[in-house]
Design a protein around this nucleic acid. Structure first.
Length: 152
DNA sequence: GCCAACGTTGGC
DNA sequence: GCCAACGTTGGC
């Protein structure tokens, strides 16, 4: 079982949206490094939901991976913001996962708190200039995040 | 294959 | 709104 961190701008898609409608295809990732991480996700993995481009940014909850390695349907929809006309239909460029809602943390952990707690080597999201929207989180770090989030 | 120009992310 | 970081594009 692997832990992950996945970013979303809450104005676009938030943990509340996922809580309301508790499964969702995580579409719109158009970065190869992030896609490669998505492709290695397995059913049962856990992912921290990170709110980006908001005040304050931070980790707000937890999701589970409920379906792995699925074709991102938005790449073939010309009306969609993430339409990719260069993606070959017989060999889709963009694959993703379906996530399921797990919990909204009693204590959201802001980026400031994360920076005060972890080094950039421990947790990539605190590294300055980091733009990756999907990244792995190692287990000891994930357990510390969970303890803070749950106040235990 | 190089690299300048450009676009996007995302914290501040 | 600014801008640092950095990925992508396209001319050569």
């Amino acid at each position: 079982m692997q832990y992950w961190l996945m970013k979303s701008e809450p104005d676009v898609y938030s943990i509340d949206d996922l809580a309301r409608d508790p499964t969702e295809i995580w579409d719109g990732v158009r970065n190869y490094q992030a896609r490669n991480f998505l492709r290695t996700m397995a059913v049962g993995d856990l992912a921290f939901f990170y709110h980006s481009n908001t005040k304050p940014p931070g980790i707000v909850g937890l999701m589970t991976i409920i379906e792995s390695d699925i074709v991102d349907p938005s790449q073939f929809d010309p009306a969609h913001k993430y339409y990719d006309p260069k993606s070959p239909p017989d060999n889709p460029r963009w694959r993703t996962v379906k996530v399921g809602y797990q919990e909204t943390f009693a204590n959201a952990i802001t980026l400031d708190q994360l920076k005060a707690t972890f080094t950039p080597e421990e947790l990539l999201v605190v590294k300055r200039g980091n733009r990756l929207s999907v990244m792995p989180v190692n287990e000891p770090v994930a357990e510390r995040i969970l303890a803070i989030a749950r106040g235990t």
